[in-house]
Design a protein around this nucleic acid. Structure first.
Length: 226
DNA sequence: ATCTCGATAGTCT
DNA sequence: GACTATCGAGATC
């Protein structure tokens, strides 16, 4: 095996307003969940709500594949997981533990039942609203950048609460650019060697599959990579 | 830093 | 009836 190649940590983003408004199109999502999970890193997730625009950089993803025992889709289609079997580029937002929502993007061809869970963001725009949504007790001013980022968006349920994503967003089309989308910010030139693959979190089966993806040395994760 | 535990309701067996 | 793609608080090191 060759030694891993280390490149400089330069992200070529075009984050001007026009690029942020342009959603990634259907074809982007129409690949396998692993490829999409890796390609989503460093891109900007945007939510437009009553309170205005909020966004953040995607820092942690997990792929859930067809024939994957950890996937909600593993035992076939049900009312709950139906969006996973629908069209790529739509949202699958599920409710769990009696109180939390988690946000996924559907990938692959129609009917394959795969998705990518967004597990963490670096919050960029709308931090005050996010802090309100999260009912942050500790004043944001007393936290350093990394601690604040973790408190707001460091976890799949945290980022949903911060961005106001919930039941009403289950099944929405992410390629339109009205409510929620991922920007086509020109990050297509990814340094793939910077991506770290590790095992997924919070599951009891499929625990050995390295389908959690983070960026090397990026502090905005839900938990450190082991 | 790492752990244990309880909350809480929808989903499927 | 069992389980859950989680989180926060509190204990302990």
């Amino acid at each position: 095996m060759a030694e891993p190649v280390v490149e400089t940590n330069v992200i070529h983003h075009n984050t001007d307003a026009a690029a942020l408004r342009a959603p990634l199109r259907h074809e982007f999502y129409e690949h396998g969940a692993i490829e999409v999970a890796r390609s989503l890193l460093n891109r900007i997730l945007i939510v437009s709500g009553e309170a205005g625009i909020m966004n953040g950089r995607i820092t942690e993803t997990e792929a859930y594949l067809p024939d994957d025992p950890a996937s909600h889709a593993f035992r076939g289609r049900t009312p709950r997981n139906a969006p996973m079997f629908g069209s790529a580029g739509h949202a699958y937002v599920y409710f769990t533990y009696g109180m939390h929502y988690c946000f996924n993007v559907v990938t692959g061809g129609e009917g394959t039942g795969e998705a990518v869970l967004i597990r963490a963001l670096e919050p960029l725009v709308g931090l005050e609203q996010m802090a309100l949504n999260r009912s942050l007790t500790e004043p944001a001013a007393t936290m350093n950048c990394h601690r604040l980022g973790r408190a707001l968006c460091g976890g799949p349920a945290r980022l949903c609460q911060a961005l106001g994503l919930g039941r009403a967003d289950n099944g929405i089309d992410l390629t339109i650019g009205d409510r929620a989308w991922i920007a086509d910010t020109g990050a297509e030139k990814h340094a793939w060697n910077m991506i770290v693959a590790s095992t997924r979190i919070g599951i009891s089966v499929g625990v050995d599959s390295p389908w959690r993806f983070t960026l090397r040395d990026d502090p905005f994760t839900s938990r450190p990579v082991k």
